[in-house]
Design a binder for these strands. Structure first.
Lengths: 139, 139
DNA sequence: TGCCATACAGACCAAAAGGTAACTATGGTC
DNA sequence: GACCATAGTTACCTTTTGGTCTGTATGGCA
């Protein structure tokens, strides 16, 4: 049995990082913000992730209460994953990370390599702000 | 030789996470925000990190241009590390992470275990906001 | 009876990240 | 010549994370 809820870091910023820094968590959350999704749907939405890891990441997020898991007893089985309030509260933070990531790429002249993070970048889609300008999108 | 500047993720949010999610990067940056620091000083400020890993993290941040390294040819040698503009631009993001981490701990009733992140939490030191309220400290 | 779909679990492996401890280099001081 | 301090490097090991592939349970359907 895996230690349930093994202690998170005591420094808040590290705690937050530990919770969201999983290889696929941001993308998964991003899809869950649009509404509940079944495992099979998520697999299609994030095709590069293996099923085991997908479930792993979902379980960790469930443990940290970012995600809710609902089971419908049917055959074949149906399970819905959705973002909790706590999970949704992460959206502005992810948005800030996204903005900063874009800016960082701009500074290093690598914007071309970047892909849009659709919803995450709503705010400023124009020319990317450089260091002097606004950094966190004032929610 | 380690691959210099191996490609960062194409999704901005993931890129940002990759850059700042190192085990000690947030704390190191936090100390560099106060001014330039020598390696020996950082070692005292962050006693739990080993010298090898400290240097590793600094080098990665240098590569990503969050940190500047200045060498003064003296005996014994002197090397100063300081936050670049790009590094400083991360402060509001770390602040947002810190706030969210505090809130997350509050929701899970684990505030007691938390340690203050001094500068990172300047804004609201009063009772920690719960989910409904402001999440990102409006910089 | 065998096949389908869904949602898992488990064995096993590989790479990355983090950590320990010992070694190098420089040139001053005792 | 031995020792000091600073700022590294190196070999080696452990843990964590991510990944592949195969197996399982359920009950409907042909």
């Amino acid at each position: 049995m895996v230690d349930p809820m093994k202690r998170l870091p005591i420094l808040p910023a590290e705690r937050a990082l530990k919770i969201i820094a999983g290889r696929w968590k941001a993308i998964i959350l991003y899809h869950l913000y649009e509404g509940p999704r079944r495992l099979s749907e998520l697999r299609k939405l994030v095709p590069d992730i293996s099923q085991k890891v997908l479930i792993q990441q979902l379980r960790e997020m469930e443990e940290h209460q970012l995600v809710r898991r609902e089971i419908f007893r049917q055959v074949p089985p149906r399970v819905d994953y959705s973002a909790t309030t706590l999970g949704r509260s992460l959206e502005p933070v992810l948005l800030a990370l996204c903005d900063w990531g874009r800016m960082h790429a701009a500074e290093l002249d690598e914007v071309d390599r970047l892909v849009d993070c659709a919803r995450f970048e709503r705010a400023n889609s124009g020319p990317i702000a450089k260091v002097g300008e606004a950094i966190v999108s004032t929610a």
